Computed example of a mutant assay.
Amino acid sequence: MVVLTKSHVTDLTREQYEGLAAVLTDKLKAAPGFIAHYAWEHEDGMSVVEIWDSDEQHDAWFENNVKPNLPVQVIPEKHELVNKVTA
């Protein structure tokens, strides 16, 4: 099942996000099941949306690579996608 995950990380600055992204982007691109990653800034932090081939693949990536580097605990919101169209 293709899954979309959404996380809002309060108190994570754009600079902190960019530092994490610099370290993790190449590993993320190589992660099994990874499809896409998008991030944007809010007044109180950063939000991230990702698309993965499966919930399990996302969870393995998040637990091993993202969670240990976040300043606060985050539980991603997950949605099963019923369709996927790419260019």
Rank of each mutant, 00 (worst) to 15 (best):
M1R: 14
V2N: 12
V3R: 03
L4P: 00
T5M: 10
T5S: 10
K6R: 15
S7L: 03
H8P: 08
T10Y: 09
T10Q: 12
L12T: 04
L12K: 07
T13I: 05
R14C: 09
Q16N: 04
Y17F: 15
Y17V: 01
E18D: 15
E18W: 08
E18L: 14
G19L: 11
L20P: 01
V23R: 12
D26M: 04
K27V: 02
K27M: 07
K27F: 02
K29T: 02
A30D: 07
A31G: 10
P32V: 08
G33F: 00
G33Q: 06
F34W: 05
F34L: 05
F34C: 08
I35D: 05
I35M: 14
A36S: 14
A36N: 12
Y38D: 13
E41W: 06
H42G: 08
D44Q: 01
D44K: 03
M46Q: 10
M46T: 03
M46D: 01
S47V: 11
V48M: 09
E50H: 02
I51H: 03
S54D: 02
S54C: 02
E56K: 14
E56M: 04
Q57S: 08
D59N: 13
D59T: 07
A60Q: 09
W61G: 03
W61M: 03
F62Q: 01
N64F: 04
N64D: 07
N65E: 10
N65T: 00
V66L: 01
P68H: 03
P68V: 01
P68E: 05
N69I: 05
N69H: 10
L70I: 01
L70K: 04
L70H: 08
P71G: 09
P71S: 09
V72A: 06
Q73W: 05
Q73H: 14
Q73Y: 12
V74H: 03
I75W: 13
P76K: 00
P76L: 06
E77C: 09
E77K: 08
L81C: 13
K84P: 00
T86C: 11
